[in-house]
Structure formats: C-alpha cells, structure tokens
Design a protein around this nucleic acid. Structure first.
Lengths: 160, 160
DNA sequence: GAGTATTTACTCGGATACTCGCTGTCCGAGTAGGGCCGG
DNA sequence: CCGGCCCTACTCGGACAGCGAGTATCCGAGTAAATACTC
C-alpha cells in the first residue's frame, strides 16, 4: 500500500503558497511548471484543497490560488485529509459477524481488539500530522529551498 | 486511500490460530469457511505470512497452518508487513529536484520537511502496531469471541 | 495380526484473469483585465 | 483627457479515459493418511 502521490504534491504546493502569500495568487499552471507536474491533475488536487477550505481560488487573469488561512492555522493533517478524503486507513469489515457461527448482537457493540489496535495506530499517525503546521514547515526549510523559490518568483511576469 | 482488506483477514486468522495452537493445524479451507472469505485468496495471504516466518504450513491430509512462533513473539506490525510488504506508506518522489529551477546537490542530502513529518507520523503508526502482540489480542478478546471459536473448533472432524 | 506397498484424497504453492481507485486529460463557465470608442 | 462599453484571454470547475495494485481464481506438485494385500 502507498499513499497517493498527490498528497506530496499538495503539501509542497501549500508550502510554496505560504512563501508567496504576500504576492499575487499563483495559478495551477505556474505551480505545475515549478515542480514539473501535470497541470490538469494538479489543478484537480488544488480544487480539493479549496473545497476543504485550505486554499482560496480566484478566477480570471492574474487569478490563481492562495492560502485561505494563515499558515499557522493549517496543519499537515488538514492538507492530507483534503486530498485523501476523511476515510480512515483501516475500516473494519466485521468479518467476525460472518461465517457459519456469526458473532452478533451485544458482543459486537464494542470493536474487536484488532480494530482497536488499528484505530489507535491511526490516531497516532494523524496526531503527528496534526502536530505540524505549514508555518512550521516553512521555518524548518533549508535556506536553499527558500532562495530557490524566491529566485523563481522573481522571474514571473507579474513580479513586483 | 485504504489499507487492503487482506490485512484485517490476516490478523483475524493469526488470532484464530493462536486460540487453536494446541490442536491440529487449520487448513485455509477451514479458516475461509469460519470467516466467510474466498478460500483461494485467503490462501494467498496465508502464504505470505508463511514467507514472513509468522506461520508454518503443513501439506497433505490433516495439514494446514499454525503459528511458527509463540504468540508473544508475533506483533501486529509483523503481520501487517507480511501482507503489505515492507514498502513505506509515504515515498518521497523528490519533486523539489524537478522543474525549471531544480534543487540538487548537497541541499538534497537531507530529506525535506514534508518527508520528515510524513516519516515521523509513519514511525508513530508502526510503533503502535509493534507495541501489541497477538498474545495481547487474545488476552483482551471478549469471552464471546473466544467461546465462539471453541464451539466451532469442537465441530471440526478431527476434534479431540 | 503385523508389516508393507499402493492408492487416494487432501494440502500448499505458483501462475493467471478481473475490478476499482489513483492518475492523467479534456473542454465549458466565469471573471477580470485590457483595448476601443465616444464625449 | 476621461469615462464607459466591449472584447479578449486567462483562470477555475466539473466530467471523461488509462493504468496499476489489490482482489479473486485456477490447476499442478507434494505429502501423509488410509487401504488393500501379503506373509
């Protein structure tokens, strides 16, 4: 099993938009160009981020995407959930209720031990993702990564 | 994204084999019957558990699967990895090295902040899975689940 | 009855199709900036 | 020169194909028990 690659793209783009939040909005065309990604599919992901309230979109010339909230209020978990949907990694199929001797009734009110462990692990995973904000990502970015973005932003047509 | 359903099946079967470890080996046919699962596909998963050293298989009449190690020495993480393969949930594609202004050289020796967060979260996930053994699952099982298995095992042809 | 060779039925093991979600793509609706015209 | 109108080009938004991992399945190799036969 593997997390969709789009999660990584969404995180990188959100990080980039944080660095550029004082300037104009960046269209999907530019973001895809910067990271060498397929434009149309990246637009699909950014759309999901807009629906989740992480980004805001502007149509028309000089339009594009920008952060909908300050980066301190955007966690990595929220970006992941925006792309992935909020479906849990583990969904118990209740196979204990199947077969010739099904276990049903009051015995199944509580999840089984396997589901408990999987859910506990998933909570630990999400907790770590929620503990880091996009602002934290920017702060811990290497100086090389930041200057790389600044240099590229300066080459854009609408650079101030 | 969703974990494969086979992970759940493998965990339930390992748990069941722990309860039955004093008796005969259980063939995939019986396990699939008990949980109402497709026999051939379950056999494929059990095969993976054998390759991982979690189960041992015996061919021929009265053959089947049993635990290869005491249940205290089998963690949930090992069962998950046996089925899933040990590929990580998040694999950084290094998109920072792509595009018109690639970031290459010494700046990419260390993983980016996004990869760090994802890896940290994944370690937390695996740590929780490794903290629980199959023996723990049996101990915390409800009495209903245990009696259900005992009742069913008694109906088997080779029941002692 | 005991031992042995044979038969038999049952098991795992690997190789082979099918299905759904992630990936990738397209065109249409909407918007805002720029250009043109008239006053 | 200034204001208003129109046009254009650019953006997002939703709907439509392609591929790979997961799902499902089959048949062959191997084994151990049960059987039949012989002594």
């Amino acid at each position: 099993m593997r997390l969709p690659e789009g999660v990584e793209w969404a995180l990188h783009c959100t990080w980039l938009l944080t660095l550029a939040r004082d300037g104009d909005a960046l269209p999907a065309r530019r973001l895809a160009e910067f990271y060498g990604l397929p434009e149309a599919y990246l637009a699909k992901l950014l759309k999901a981020l807009v629906r989740a309230g992480v980004l805001s979109a502007t149509s028309g010339p000089r339009g594009g995407f920008r952060l909908a909230r300050p980066p301190e209020a955007i966690t990595v978990a929220q970006v992941v959930e925006a792309v992935e949907g909020q479906s849990p990694l583990f969904h118990c199929m209740e196979i204990r209720q199947r077969g010739p001797v099904p276990l049903t009734g009051a015995a199944c009110r509580k999840p089984c031990g396997i589901a408990k462990v999987m859910h506990r692990a998933e909570r630990a995973w999400r907790k770590e993702l929620a503990a880091t904000t996009v602002a934290d990502l920017v702060e811990t970015s290497g100086i090389g990564a930041v200057t790389r973005v600044s240099t590229w932003l300066a080459t854009l047509p609408g650079a101030s």
